[in-house]
């Protein structure tokens, strides 16, 4: 009889990275508006933790593309992509084309990752699941009218999730969050 392979109780480096990154993402998305630290700055860790050959990804930032291609994910147009990396967003036009999923399959809505500045810029009042009553945060570096546009696009349960990266800090904004610009 063959001996069963011994399990490895020590995770590999990539596994540890992905686990920590996902831990930050799930925590951030469960508690919208509260920043959480990723193991390292930038989109690369998120890409490695989430993307593989079953994904279609779009990136507005060409510097991220090699990292996406390394995962085997298909590079797609923005409206066909389930993961959208917008980098530092300049104008609102790309938002119109982001996949929202359907009422039947809300999970087809995209996950959007973009860069911003946490603690600067306009104040936002957040409410919804994950927030006890309301929470006020400042998120800068996004084009003006971004949150109004998001509100106009999302028809819950259709919509998309946003992760805002500022260095190694990440804020998650699920589609269920109501945002009022102060």
């Amino acid at each position: 009889m063959l001996a069963a392979p011994e399990p490895s109780p020590d995770p590999s480096l990539s596994e540890t990275d992905a686990n920590q990154t996902f831990d930050a993402l799930i925590w951030a998305l469960s508690r919208p508006g509260i920043p959480r630290g990723l193991p390292a700055a930038g989109e690369a860790r998120i890409i490695r933790a989430l993307l593989d050959r079953e994904c279609r990804a779009y990136s507005a930032d060409p510097l991220i593309l090699p990292e996406i291609m390394r995962t085997g994910a298909q590079i797609a147009e923005i409206d066909a992509a389930d993961h959208v990396f917008l980098g530092a967003l300049q104008d609102l036009a790309p938002l119109d084309r982001i996949a929202l999923g359907s009422d039947l399959y809300p999970d087809d809505g995209a996950t959007v990752v973009l860069r911003g500045q946490i603690g600067q810029g306009p104040g936002l009042r957040l409410s919804g699941p994950g927030i006890e009553s309301t929470l006020t945060v400042q998120i800068g570096g996004l084009p003006s009218g971004f949150w109004q546009k998001r509100r106009a696009l999302i028809r819950y349960p259709m919509g998309f999730e946003i992760f805002i990266l500022d260095g190694a800090a990440v804020i998650g904004i699920p589609r269920s969050t109501d945002i009022e610009v102060l």
Binding site: S8, A18, L25, I26, L50, D52, C55, D107, P174
Partner: peptide, 22 residues
Amino acid sequence: YGFLDASAKREMRRKMLKSIAV
């Protein structure tokens, strides 16, 4: 590590994020 292979875990992660969002 943790029995599941990396691609299975990535799928679980993607779906967990979506299930939290809705």
